[in-house]
């Protein structure tokens, strides 16, 4: 199949891109890496009248240090983040997850922000950004706003972006001291969307107890799901095997996935528990050695 005819626009600045979005709004789609959009166009599951290709927009292709964190603009490829020494050091969670996103060829082209704006609830990046409490930088001709990841992802392939808005970048704040992270997923076939994945960010208090925790699962709900019951089990406790086991049970109990031809609901629920335990065990060991 080939896409339905569309008008191709290639703005060279953010302002031009926003003007095009303002003009065509619902009738337009933004093309960045195209790893999700191009197949949708070819299958005619998406048939926009205007395709706004932002690849020529200046200034969106380099990560940069900002006050207290890192900013990943809209044209930064997934592979760039995966291989960036600075980002690897600052957020080990990013390469841990990115290495399991599809295949290298796809990550070479696909962008971080493109995956976030696409908002597939089975994808790694929305889950990871939710765990990192990242902030989406959203712009339109009406101005700019910041949206926390948890508010950004709303439903299957649905974000809080308005029709005239562009996700210009995502900012991730530096992790507090004594913070450990972990990621685990399982896909029967390499490179496929995972049946389930879990990302965790845990900050330990001076006594070794969990002071702050964000535990997020993908593939089990219409958007990345915070495992709040499991988090409650952990808060204020040292992550001993018993506590981690209780968190695993809580995680298994609080998700309500649906089954499909690839995996039953029960199996997905089981996976979330096992993956949560593995993430927390890694984090606990790392924290105990720190």
């Amino acid at each position: 199949m080939k896409p339905r005819p569309f008008t191709y626009l290639a703005p060279t600045s953010v302002d031009e891109a926003l003007a095009a979005l303002a003009e065509h709004s619902f009738d337009a789609k933004v093309l960045a890496g195209g790893q999700s959009l191009a197949p949708l166009l070819n299958f005619r599951m998406a048939s926009p009248e205007y395709l706004i290709d932002i690849n020529d927009v200046a200034g969106l292709d380099r990560v940069r240090r900002v006050d207290g964190g890192w900013h990943i603009p809209a044209l930064v490829r997934q592979r760039t983040v995966e291989r960036s020494p600075e980002l690897r050091a600052a957020f080990p969670l990013l390469p841990a997850a990115l290495e399991q996103v599809a295949h290298p060829q796809i990550r070479n082209r696909g962008t971080v922000c493109g995956s976030l704006a696409h908002a597939d609830p089975a994808a790694e990046l929305p889950t990871v950004m939710t765990a990192l409490d990242a902030t989406m930088r959203v712009a339109s001709v009406r101005g700019e706003r910041e949206v926390p990841a948890e508010e950004f992802f709303q439903f299957h392939f649905t974000t809080s972006l308005e029709d005239d808005e562009l996700l210009v970048g995502v900012t991730v704040d530096d992790l507090p001291p004594a913070t450990s992270t972990g990621f685990a997923e399982f896909a029967p076939r390499h490179g496929d969307f995972a049946l389930a994945a879990v990302a965790g960010v845990v900050t330990r208090a001076s006594d070794g107890a969990v002071g702050a925790v964000r535990l997020v699962a993908s593939g089990v709900a219409a958007r990345p799901q915070r495992l709040t019951a499991a988090e409650k089990v952990l808060l204020g406790q040292r992550p001993t095997p018993d506590v981690v086991g209780a968190a695993e049970r809580a995680a298994r109990g609080e998700v309500d996935p649906t089954g499909d031809i690839h995996a039953s609901a029960d199996y997905r629920r089981h996976l979330v528990g096992v993956l949560a335990r593995r993430v927390l065990t890694t984090i606990a060991e790392e924290g105990d050695h720190a």
Binding site: H103, H190, I261
Partner: peptide
């Protein structure tokens, strides 16, 4: 047939 496509009918990829 519910999986009459290569996204849902799984064949091994190189990494498998």
């Amino acid at each position: 047939i519910m999986n009459a496509n290569l996204g849902d009918y799984l064949v091994p990829v190189h990494a498998d």
